[in-house]
């Protein structure tokens, strides 16, 4: 039923990924291997969860740049609480704590956006500074490298391990399941609940949504709480996998994450965005980060490559739209 539609970003990004892999395999046949795949999947966990969160906001017609600060806040304060108060807390509870902190911070965004009606970019720009400033001033600014046992346990759990033909080890951490879970849950919310459809509806036309009786404020509030919760989850996973809680981590990633989502076809104007596209966008960014060197481009050119991808990936559809508009009477 579905034909290859080249005007869709998803198709475009998928083709670029395939092309990249083909080039990489030609220049280094060992590229096509389990370690490459597991590195890719591993590198995509935190970025992927962030991207899913950012996509939900973009679909609703907003933009959130504070989620990295929320993640850092939730991750660091959870670790601190564990270390100083409850070292024995099992990891699922620690994760729940981090998610809860994230959701609470997201609720602050939600209040300013849904109930004060402030523009999303400005609010999250402000809360980015607030969350980060609060964290570093009042919670702490020192690296915690001695993670609580439960988090270390978590990071050691693997879905599978193996040894490659050339003797290199590979493994996929349990945390990958978190990304899978987030994707499934978000898919369910977006596509199977009225709440999710309302998110799309608001992104399509806030005024129309209001006119048919969608509770726009409640939906917006939910979005930012949900994004906060996902950020909390991504944060604690990041710390567990890095085996260190660094309060300076993560912040600074926000624009790249949004870029990955837009690369995957989500529109900045709202109403359009898919999980497939988002994951493809993340895949491409991680691939470029991990493996640019394989296709003969030095890794110092990494950010140029990502920049070019963003410009081409968003520029092509924009240019097509502009030409179509000029053609139309």
């Amino acid at each position: 039923m579905k034909r290859l539609d080249f005007s869709r970003n998803e198709t475009l990004v998928a083709l670029v990924i395939l092309g990249f892999c083909a080039l990489a395999t030609i220049s280094d046949p060992s590229f096509l291997s389990m370690p490459t795949l597991t590195d890719l999947l591993r590198g995509g966990i935190v970025l992927g969860i962030f991207a899913v969160a950012a996509m939900v906001v973009l679909v609703s017609g907003g933009i959130d740049v504070s989620f990295t600060a929320i993640a850092a806040f939730a991750m660091y304060s959870t670790t601190l609480i564990l270390v100083s108060l409850a070292p024995g807390l099992p990891w699922p509870l620690a994760f729940a704590l981090s998610v809860g902190i994230g959701a609470a911070l997201g609720a602050i965004n939600g209040i300013f956006i849904a109930f004060f009606g402030l523009p999303t970019l400005i609010v999250t720009l402000g809360t980015l500074s607030i969350f980060r400033g609060f964290l570093l001033t009042f919670v702490g600014s020192k690296l915690i490298s001695n993670l609580p046992q439960s988090m270390r346990d978590f990071s050691k759990q693997m879905l599978f391990r193996g040894t490659n033909a050339d003797g290199s080890f590979f493994s996929l951490p349990l945390a990958f399941l978190a990304l899978v879970g987030v994707v499934v849950l978000t898919w369910f919310i977006l596509n199977r609940t009225l709440l999710g459809r309302s998110i799309f509806a608001i992104g399509g036309s806030v005024e129309s949504a209001r006119r048919i009786g969608v509770n726009v404020r409640a939906v917006q509030f939910f979005i930012y709480v949900y994004v906060g919760a996902l950020a909390g989850l991504a944060g604690i996973i990041h710390a567990s996998m890095a085996r260190v809680a660094n309060p300076f981590d993560l912040v600074g990633l926000e624009l790249s994450v949004i870029a990955a989502v837009v690369l995957g076809g989500a529109r900045l104007t709202g109403g359009v965005g898919t999980l497939t596209g988002t994951l493809l966008g993340v895949t491409l960014i991680v691939l470029v980060r991990n493996s640019l060197i394989v296709i003969g481009i030095p890794s110092t050119w990494q950010s140029v490559a990502i920049g070019v991808l963003i410009l081409v990936g968003t520029g092509l559809p924009a240019w097509q739209a502009k030409r179509a508009a000029a053609r139309a009477g």
Binding site: L255, I258, A259, V262, L268, T300, W301, Q302, S303, V304, A305, I306, G307, V308, L309, I310, L311, T314, G315, A318, W319, A321, K322
Partner: peptide, 18 residues
């Protein structure tokens, strides 16, 4: 080319830094 400014300058910023 009609790119949204936020994306155009995000991408070009990466390129300049790169």
């Amino acid at each position: 080319l009609g790119l949204p400014a936020i994306l155009a300058t995000l991408g070009s910023g990466l390129i300049f830094t790169g």
